[in-house]
Design a binder for these strands. Structure first.
Lengths: 215, 215
DNA sequence: GTCTATAAACAGATAGAC
DNA sequence: GTCTATCTGTTTATAGAC
């Protein structure tokens, strides 16, 4: 059913294995994916997995590392100096919108978002690297923007939980996508549907910000 | 690490198998769980799985059915007639709070919530039954309450997405629990932490309702 | 209905040729 | 570095005794 997007241009067996594993882990989950299937998709043999990564677990970790690496290079971290409330508001909106479109519009994200979702659902070992290198900085930056808007303390529990609430909506709509589509009467989740969800999340964000400004 | 709660009082091999499978599927996922482990935990033999359920897949479906059955009997569906905005507001708050505590405070929910989370993450076949028998009615009821409060059309896209946004937060805090705890500096998610999350979600709910009332 | 024993396929890891 | 062949253990499913 998924459009058979070709794997990333193979620059060596090692990279091909990571690309193949990321796709299959994301589609079927870690336990359900055999090393043989990975090797076949990568155009190589099973033994190369042990050679390059020490085993299936090592390949999983390598996928998580590659995930963090690609996302970090894709998301240039802006300076995020002290901002006016209005500027922070625009930045936060843009960031949330970008994340929503990235998470929901998988074609752009390739095989990485399904992999992340699986790893999150399975509480995989790769999450530690992804957390420290990607999630924690992102969340911290969102909190800083949030605080610039509402005047709250950036690292207060209230701000942290509010940011999690917003990010959580994005993740939920991604994970429960099929169920949401069914309830909404959507045949599938295309550009229009992603737009509707994204707008809803941004509207929710504003509602939360307004409430936080007037406590 | 998890407190070794005894399985539900074994009333026959069939029930014991379902209880054991629900726990192991929830803890490790479907693919990572062997039929032998299930049979051992259930105090029976592997062959009984094929006998009673036709195979591992049949057992998974039986778990999903049992899940829906238990939740439906636990959640008596109130009449939900036409309500004043205030009454609807109280009911919606109570319902969201109950769901949050149920989803986050797993001991009360036993092995069912982890199973549901796994099934959701894996997009398992059991979800169809769970959706039609549990999620759809619940979501519909929430929408009705929401509409009674804001005056919107109960089955409008805006209301449906708003309800999903609220429910989604609960699911996210459950799924990403370990990550959230780490960022919050929580050693674990106990009663106090569940309370903090629940209060946050209810506060978010109010913010969304206020925004919906004044468009 | 329950169980033991076994079948047949598959898993991940590795030895060793090239 | 890459590959074939193989080892060892495990998987689900089933045959057949009780």
């Amino acid at each position: 059913m998924s459009t058979t997007v070709p794997l990333t241009a193979p620059e060596g067996t090692r990279a091909a294995l990571i690309a193949a594993a990321m796709r299959l882990f994301g589609q079927q989950g870690f336990a359900a994916t055999s090393t043989r299937a990975i090797a076949t998709l990568a155009g190589t043999n099973v033994a190369s997995i042990s050679y390059h990564f020490g085993g299936k677990d090592g390949l999983r970790q390598a996928c998580a590392d590659e995930f963090s690496r690609q996302i970090r290079s894709a998301m240039a971290t802006p300076p995020a100096h002290i901002l006016s409330a209005d500027a922070a508001h625009s930045q936060l909106h843009a960031a949330v919108r970008r994340m929503a479109e990235f998470m929901l519009g998988s074609p752009a994200a390739g095989d990485m978002v399904p992999f992340l979702i699986r790893e999150l659902g399975e509480n995989g070992p790769g999450l530690t690297a992804i957390y420290t290198e990607l999630m924690e900085p992102t969340h911290r930056r969102f909190c800083a923007l949030w605080a610039s808007i509402t005047g709250q303390a950036p690292e207060s529990d209230a701000v942290k939980l509010s940011v999690f609430s917003t990010i959580g909506q994005i993740f939920y709509f991604r994970m429960a996508g099929p169920l949401v589509a069914r309830r909404m009467g959507w045949a599938h989740i295309g550009a229009a549907e992603i737009d509707a969800i994204s707008i809803q999340i941004q509207s929710n964000l504003d509602a939360l910000l307004v409430a936080a400004e007037r406590p």
